[in-house]
Design a protein around this nucleic acid. Sequence first.
DNA 1: GAAACCATTTGCCATTTGACAAAAAGTGAT
DNA 2: ATCACTTTTTGTCAAATGGCAAATGGTTTC
Lengths: 189, 189
Amino acid sequence: MDEFIEYILQFGNLNKQQVDLIRGKATEMELRKDEYYWEAGKAVKQIGFITSGVLRVYYYNNKGEEITRYFVDENHLILSGNTVDEVFMPSEYLSAITDCKLVVFSKQNWKDISATIIGWDTIIQKIITKHHSEKITRRSELVSQDGTERYVDFIDKFPTLVNRVPLSYIASYLGVTQSSLSRIRKNIR
Amino acid sequence: MDEFIEYILQFGNLNKQQVDLIRGKATEMELRKDEYYWEAGKAVKQIGFITSGVLRVYYYNNKGEEITRYFVDENHLILSGNTVDEVFMPSEYLSAITDCKLVVFSKQNWKDISATIIGWDTIIQKIITKHHSEKITRRSELVSQDGTERYVDFIDKFPTLVNRVPLSYIASYLGVTQSSLSRIRKNIR
DNA sequence: GAAACCATTTGCCATTTGACAAAAAGTGAT
DNA sequence: ATCACTTTTTGTCAAATGGCAAATGGTTTC
């Protein structure tokens, strides 16, 4: 819970009263390894923030292969879609790679916060924008890199993930086969 | 100009008075082939909408290679950063591949529109969100495709660009070398 | 500890792609 | 038509990667 408050405070100021309001609207929950946070085609009813653990977003391409699009770890907000008013129906899966702890808000509670705290929407908007640019930048870089560069950069950017995420998921995220990645790792040492 | 109004109307309603306001705040301008719309490190002072022509966004990677991140063609809004209030300092270049016609708004005029038309910010937010997801999706797909798939998909998604954009830019966008792409094209025929 | 299970590494070979250089095709100006 | 210039294609070879299958390593369960 505290992690979430701290996270939000990086993007804007809140007074004690506002912090208390947020605390009151939050629920803590856990997700076990391999459980879904959301599934393609099933409406998402809450907004979540990860306080511990790692999840991954993945989808199936037109050849039926499972592709990991990105990882989500501690201290990240999961903003399903953008708006609370519309139903958000994901086309991807989001599932736990490890056991996770989350802080979640029902859509109604989230709306209440947004209606009560002036500037809340602006804060969230900033976060969304930041996430988007980071994702675009990261995925873009991969396109023009070879396997080794992709992996070296990955280690560099996500040092805490390397040892917690199965190789096959990293390989899929990087767009190389698992065996290639295994060889790349051997060459790097 | 009409193209811009029509574009905006796809995302929300405007009455005649509002449309007139927008028209009054807009300026038409042209950009010749190879001229910059913006340059890395130089503050961007306007918001633009392309009515004809193609531009490309590119940057230099850590090896000094020029990488095309994406193309921007007719009927697209160029939203520098997200907010009008902060100075937007791009880290990339945006330059015209062909002669272009644009509709532009000064930051002040854009602010005026935003302050006058209720719902304007929501419309713009929708557009930004749409752009972001499209970019992430496209760039992501490339990562797990081989050269041929990348090119076939490109033709499929941007049929109007293939014949207007030099091969070297397409190759860079797709993350393959120009000679590979040339061979890929030969094999496809 | 053995068995079952899952993750990772390795071997082998075919295919793809990159690097580099030269040739061919296309474009524009005179 | 010619020359200068740019873009695209092609040739050759080396390196990187994929596909497939087997081997190895690790973990969990009984």
